[in-house]
Design a protein around this nucleic acid. Structure first.
Lengths: 205, 205
DNA sequence: GATTAAATCTAGTACGCACTAGAAAAGTCA
DNA sequence: TGACTTTTCTAGTGCGTACTAGATTTAATC
């Protein structure tokens, strides 16, 4: 009973790693098996199909990202500025997806290259995740520290998008850390790049 | 000499459309051929391999995006605010990638799911494209209207990332247009979502 | 140490993929 | 029309894929 759990974990880890770096298609059952020194057929003793295995990796990825953000928000003082909550969440997300383990990275990286069944499962997880951000933005707008003339849903997706796309260019070896990326996203999106007065008038969409 | 050019164009169009909606792996030579009512083998009279065909589609995509942004910038008055240039470029990009044809969409959509050879070709095109944005940001910082305490390269990638990721959620059927998305990105990234005073102090990375 | 259960392996199937060779058809122009 | 070229089709190859069946080994239990 013990051995099985250990190998199962090894398979999940190898899959997450491969998905994060090589993507869905290049992640073959055979390559996963090779990574942990097994035959490809042996994988099927632990998982009934490739997509069930991949699906489990993706679920773990979203769960870890959610946990990271939730934990960061829980540490805020009771009377925090809503913008500070947004800042903490953005940085937590950046660290989870860029600097964290393979699971959240696999999740974001394979977005958009999955077969329909998995895409559906994937999107469901993202929807739940999005609700955290919806609340953060709502808090800011309703308490008057964030602009109310922007479409909140679009704003949310733009923030998440900027963070998710960072996986395509972020290089852990460079001097810019995952937290730095998060801080930049926050600074740009909340305070703006502009010096002094805003550039043009408000929009209404 | 005429017939060949026309079918060649049909093949490119069908490939762009399939790449934009289904991605690289799901875009098979057979499916492309079916779309235009041909046998898959006939494709090889016009293109020597799938990847040569895909590569050409991607090149067209980047070219169109570059053209769209360049054209928008060319229409600015000589004494324009650097932030206005950024705004115009962001909206032009959004319209090209979200509301435009299949070619730019194919380009962004398949980013990160291509085989190594094509990835290299792809990245080269993006690098050239990035230079346009580098210049826009540099202009803003050097003329004093954009903050100088942010890493310009990171800022550039965050803007482009927010725009590129929009392809994953943007729905042309909804009431939010491609230009609206661009306007939102600009408002958030340049003016910020914050009302009044910035939230916390400057960063230095 | 023998018996049973768990885990892995060997060997194979079926299928979809990109791609090829050569025959057939369609178009071009005297 | 007839000779020639361009374009498309028919029919197939080889390969990598996910996955299966049954034998074989490894581990746990009495």
């Amino acid at each position: 009973m013990k051995k099985s759990d250990r190998t199962r974990q090894d398979i999940l880890d190898a899959t997450a790693s491969s998905l994060a770096t090589a993507g869905y298609t290049a992640t073959t059952v055979k390559s996963i098996a090779e990574t942990i020194g097994m035959q490809d057929a042996s994988i099927y003793y632990h998982f009934s199909s490739k997509d069930e295995l991949v699906g489990e990796v993706l679920d773990i990825g979203t769960a870890r990202a959610v946990t990271a953000v939730d934990r960061a928000l829980a540490e805020l003082p009771d009377d925090h500025d809503p913008r500070e909550a947004l800042r903490v969440a953005i940085i937590a997300h950046a660290e989870a997806v860029l600097g964290g383990g393979d699971y959240p990275r696999a999740n974001v990286r394979t977005f958009g290259q999955l077969p329909p069944d998995l895409t559906h499962r994937h999107r469901q997880g993202h929807r739940n995740y999005g609700q955290i951000w919806t609340r953060l933005i709502d808090d800011g707008v309703e308490s008057g520290v964030l602009r109310g003339d922007l479409n909140r849903s679009v704003a949310r997706l733009i923030i998440i998008g900027a963070l998710c796309w960072a996986i395509e260019w972020f290089d852990a070896g460079e001097e810019v850390s995952a937290a730095d990326v998060g801080e930049h996203v926050f600074q740009m999106v909340v305070n703006g790049m502009s010096v002094g007065q805003p550039h043009s008038t408000a929009v209404s969409v």
